[in-house]
Design a protein around this nucleic acid. Structure first.
Lengths: 388, 388
DNA sequence: TAGAGTTCGTAAAGACTACAGCGATATTCG
DNA sequence: CGAATATCGCTGTAGTCTTTACGAACTCTA
């Protein structure tokens, strides 16, 4: 089926087992040789040889024996998660957020810079560069030790990493983030849509960790969607999967206007805070606000129903700025979906806040690293190393 | 990530290489040891050992040397595709179609029985049993030598193989095909939606062999869809993926009525043939017929646009009874999609005819067999054998 | 404090696999 | 009929994992 008729060599066998040990070690507390032997199914002497090799290549460190119950205390071995790092960047309308994580996926530092929504591309890119530089500075990590970068932007992303079709960021359609970052970094760099990244984050650390089929709906001043099918993020052939909002019959573009245009919003409240005010008023019982929220949710439900009917997911996750008010939205949304769909999935509200896009970017960057380490199966036991 | 921390054994190595040889042999003309050595990357002596083993287990047969160019003529080895067979069944409204294929996927026989659309479930099941029995009879294949069965039915299929949500076949929602066939066959039996199977067939032997992201639209007296994403059929969490037609704003349920209710259809033409008459008239230039076709296509386009925007596929395949008139539909459909979508995929018309569902069923059954043979990677080098 | 019990670390022997190389064999070509 | 060519079958070598065994290190108990 696939092109690679891989006949397996003896040397490859050792590589496979070495990787097997690494997998058994990753993201786990320090383990003894016997524990690893049980996990991998290999014999103790074998595992020992593998571990010695991994120590020589600096993938693994020794933790000297702590107190044990009985018998000779065992040396414990630990995956050296700090062998490499990945970078996740969220380039949003109001802010830029750069996060750094080690190979275990634990975030070690993050830097946030505010950006004006109408800032031109060069200003925005300067904020990005500054945030990245500060994060590297603080963590004392050299750019060459960043193994993968993922960048989140708004709008559908094409294969080259640009958002030529459409983006709400002014002037951004002519920007090529891969090229820009490529001057400073020589690792793989990918750009991805923010909704898609948020969906990935929900499956990684959010409310949908148990699900393999997820529809993530961004409910905020913008409305969008990200799809995870069979445990994998789906981009579509042209990177435009989930853009159901482009269908005019789906009123996603105008949906937030129900909130902004709600009668009774005081003059003093700016346009960006109007929605929050309406949700607060609705929770307090204001009839006009309640109507506005209901109308908004009904519009949101039409597009959601189209996604649900198409994909029949296990979970719908409500994210974005309005997810804090999910208690007001969920019930109406569920009723509408029951009316429109064959089978209604679970509805859950995101709790990740505005770090979700950067988190998803980290996860995708880690996936990229994993692919090169454990990946294609060809010839890569150990991998990307740069002479410091 | 996955549970199986599989440490690889020496015996497993031999299994892997044996499978590698089988893969290099499958669906190919008889090959020599040297050819196999090149394809698998293994050495000649190694391949020879593998092949001897496979011959002993009757997976492979020897073809005695035919004329060669020069040098000692090499024995050629051939995968014994007739070692097992799979069964694909299409249970449709008007007909029942049973097909048998060998392990290479070449269809060896098919039997078709007409069924009245309003036939009750027991009558339909009798037709199914008869078709299967005749196919086995003709090919002299024993039921125990059928290694997998896939059945296609209309309506969304749940995990147990029933169509409890909805089906146009009268009384069928209470039928459990897996249980029914399980009395006669002990192999894996799966039931799948007909649109989904047709989609699989298009990627296997139809017009979408080059694509990994496919939206298949069934355009006929019924309207439906099947989705292939990243090369794999997507069922959805509850098996109801692609059922966008359930959305009332998508006028798929009533779309064919534009054709049936077209003014000018002669009394003599029955309701089943009205659509064909309208297409013929439209091709001849009849204005009323052309309007009817345009209206039908516009309704078809709304749901298709929702699918396309959600998934951003490479190809949209038009199948079903109306695909013979795709020349009348394609242009209008493309124009509508250009109006509604961000990026318009290729539109292709199916040429598989009414065997597509049974073909897709065969492919899924073969996939099931492959999974057990090459599959999960645990301990299965050779596999399902029944003492005859 | 000494000995028993337990577990770890490491070394040697055994079994199996794949690979490289060589002579024997079978066919075609001149 | 001999030369050329390519396959076939066999033997020895290198590499890997496993099993077995024994010394080392620590805890518990008397």
């Amino acid at each position: 089926m696939t092109g690679a008729m891989t006949g397996t060599d003896l040397a490859r066998l050792r590589e496979l087992n070495s990787l097997s040990v690494v997998r058994a070690l990753r993201g786990q507390p320090p383990a003894t040789v016997t524990e690893l032997a049980q996990r991998t199914g290999l014999s103790r002497p074998s595992v020992d040889v593998m571990v010695q090799g991994l120590i020589a290549e600096e993938w693994v460190t020794i933790v000297e024996p702590t107190g044990s119950i009985v018998g000779r205390p065992a040396r414990r071995y630990q995956f050296r998660a700090s062998a490499g790092h990945v970078l996740g960047v969220d380039i949003g309308g109001h802010k830029v957020l750069a996060m750094i994580a080690d190979l275990d996926g634990t975030a070690v530092h993050s830097v946030r810079h505010p950006v004006a929504p109408d800032a031109d591309p060069s200003t925005r890119l300067e904020a990005v560069d500054a945030a990245i530089a500060e994060a590297l500075e603080y963590t004392k990590i050299h750019p060459a030790d960043i193994w993968a970068i993922t960048v989140g932007v708004t709008g559908p992303v094409d294969a080259s990493g640009r958002t030529t079709l459409f983006t709400p960021l002014p002037g951004w359609s002519s920007v090529n983030p891969v090229e820009h970052l490529g001057r400073r970094f020589s690792c793989p760099i990918q750009v991805e849509n923010d909704c898609k990244l948020a969906a990935v984050a929900e499956r990684w650390h959010g409310v949908a960790q148990d699900a393999d089929d997820i529809v993530y709906v961004l409910a905020g001043m913008r409305t969008g969607a990200g799809l995870i099918i069979d445990g994998t993020l789906r981009r579509g052939f042209g990177g435009a999967a989930g853009e159901i909002g482009a269908l005019r019959a789906v009123r996603w573009l105008d949906a937030p206007s129900h909130l902004q245009g709600c009668p009774g919003v005081p003059e003093s409240v700016g346009p960006d805070d109007a929605a929050a005010w309406v949700f607060a008023a609705a929770r307090a019982g204001d009839p006009a606000a309640k109507t506005a929220v209901r109308r908004y949710t009904k519009d949101l439900a039409v597009g959601t129903a189209a996604l649900v009917l198409t994909l029949d997911p296990q979970v719908v996750v409500i994210g974005g700025g309005f997810s804090r008010s999910a208690d007001l939205i969920s019930d109406v949304l569920r009723r509408e979906l029951e009316r429109l769909c064959l089978r209604v999935p679970e509805i859950r509200a995101s709790t990740l806040g505005d770090e979700s896009v950067a988190l998803g970017a980290l996860r995708l960057a880690l996936d990229e690293v994993d692919l090169r380490l454990f990946g294609a199966g060809l010839s890569a036991p150990v991998a990307p190393r740069r002479a410091s």
